[in-house]
């Protein structure tokens, strides 16, 4: 229902004839401003990456992304995203529900705390995890006793990623849920629905686009995170190197084309997630 509204163009809402010309002007000015901004800040850097990636030909490109170290980096990055994104989705929904549907003391503080991982420098994020889980940290000696390793192995990378991407889903959902209000859910409850029914039939359909955006952002950032992961990874080749770290290694080895090849692959990954999003949108529209 809401999507129908969205699909309607501004033109059709102009009840008044004389406003039409004016609108077109604004439209073109705004659109060209947007194009200019996006071309300078997004398109040119993106093109640059691909130009660099193919500078030495397609052969070098494919060799770079199929080499064993690159493959293990790709695998690790996907594993990290597969674990951290769903966990953040659960958290995001819970946190957004809590903040938009209930009144309680300290809500503003909680909201700000949720956003805090954005504000924390990735360097600090990595550092605190090292301080906490490391051998000199609080949990370190305890973990060591059980032979558990978190820092400088895969779990540490996953936790660092979860830390950095924590706010995305929640922060996407909160404005949407706020705009929605809670009358529909209240109606569902008073009509006798239980909590899950209400959530699945009323809440979820109305937040699904926000949720999807949140997941896509969360996923993109999980794949691209560099700073925090770099601190907790230990940089062991073929073992704890994620794609962004692999890009850095290649760049530092003067393999500029290979570095940009892996970087371009990461941009492609992001574009693929967006294609999936578009496809889902298109399918739901058809229904």
């Amino acid at each position: 229902m809401t999507t129908d509204l969205v699909r309607q163009e501004v033109k059709s809402t102009d009840g008044i004839k004389h406003a039409k010309k004016e609108v077109n002007w604004t439209k073109y000015i705004l659109m060209s401003l947007m194009f200019l901004y996006l071309v300078v800040f997004l398109l040119i850097p993106l093109v640059f990456i691909f130009v660099k990636a193919f500078e030495k030909g397609a052969e070098v490109y494919f060799a770079a992304i199929t080499e064993p170290d690159a493959l293990s980096a790709i695998k690790l990055t996907i594993l990290v995203a597969i674990i951290s994104v769903p966990l953040n989705v659960v958290f995001g929904i819970a946190a957004a529900w809590l903040i938009t549907k209930f009144q309680f003391k300290g809500k503003q503080i909680l909201l700000s705390l949720i956003e805090l991982p954005f504000a924390v420098s990735p360097v600090i994020a990595g550092l605190v995890l090292v301080l906490f889980f490391g051998p000199r940290g609080v949990l370190g000696p305890f973990l060591d006793e059980f032979g558990l390793k978190i820092i400088f192995s895969v779990p540490g990378i996953i936790i660092a990623t979860m830390f950095v991407t924590l706010p995305f889903v929640a922060r996407e959902l909160i404005p949407v849920m706020q705009a929605q209000g809670k009358t529909e859910e209240e109606a569902a409850i008073s009509l006798g629905a239980n909590g899950w029914q209400m959530f699945l039939r009323v809440t979820l359909p109305s937040i699904k686009w926000g949720l999807l955006y949140g997941m896509i952002l969360c996923n993109a950032r999980a794949i691209g995170e560099f700073g925090a992961v770099s601190v907790v990874s230990g940089h062991i080749r073929g073992e704890t190197n994620t794609m962004p770290l692999h890009v850095e290694i290649l760049y530092n080895e003067y393999q500029f084309s290979a570095a940009f090849a892996v970087a371009s692959l990461m941009s492609l990954l992001a574009l693929v997630t967006l294609l999936i999003k578009t496809w889902i949108e298109w399918r739901t529209e058809k229904h």
Binding site: V6, E9, V10, K27, L30, M31, M34, L38, L42, L43, P45, L46, I49, P122, I216, L217, A220, R221, I223, G224, E225, F226, G227, M243, P244, V247, E248, Y251, A259, F260, A263, M266, S267, L269, A270, L271, L274, L275, K277, T278
Partner: peptide
């Protein structure tokens, strides 16, 4: 512009926006 206007290539541009998140910051 993305929400209110319809123009060719809109979806692609929409996808573009997330690029800075997806690119490793070092790149």
């Amino acid at each position: 512009v993305l929400v209110r206007y319809r123009f060719p290539g809109k979806r692609i541009i929409d996808g573009f926006i997330d690029l800075p998140f997806a690119l490793p910051t070092a790149v």
